[in-house]
Design a protein around this nucleic acid. Sequence first.
DNA 1: ATCCCGAGGG
DNA 2: CCCTCTGGAT
Length: 219
Amino acid sequence: MPGEPTAEERRAARTILNRLKKRYPDIGTALAYRDPWQLLVATVMSAQTTDEQVNKVTPGLFRRWPGPADLAAADPEEVEQAIFSTGFYRQKTASIQALSADLMERHDGVVPADLDELVRLRGVGRKTASVVLAEAFGIPAIAVDTHVKRVANRLGLVDEQDPTKIEHALRSLYPEREWTGISMRYIQFGREVCDAKAPRCWECPLRDRCAYPDKADGP
DNA sequence: ATCCCGAGGG
DNA sequence: CCCTCTGGAT
């Protein structure tokens, strides 16, 4: 849906968020971290894995390599072993080491609180950058992952597959002060109710305003 | 078999 | 736009 959203579309989007707020009053990332760099690394590793799986390896990873300088200088094979169970371990190792090296070279080891700067780090895309901005810095950002994409499409808020386009559509649908709380609520809702394979439509608080057909009616 | 808080390359 | 990278849980 290109262009500015209509008042009706904004109202629908607001109603949806209000109900999700009622269901999830307080929400934050399930990833364990102590500083922005740790969240950045943990988020990169969260691709195609559960947060729980990431939280199993990050304590050991950060104990062994406490900062970006340490990780950038680490033996890649040792890093691969440390994060093996999260899957995509070669690519993820390359990413977290490259991102750490970029931080040292360009930002003196400090994670920048800026979307464009974050995206410029190797291995960091818009989704990861937005998570760090919203969670670690409290800066308005909407991270569009597989859940946000699925939920927003099913609810008819967008008709779009490209994450960047979805992000911009959601940005225009909601006031900036709401951006930070959107992703995590859509994600949690996507996990618990609006499941990819078997949506639990019979217990969905948004059922009355969803065009998505009930693919699984009844427990 | 299918999915999990993706990014980079073609 | 598509494909590839990869292990673990269900």
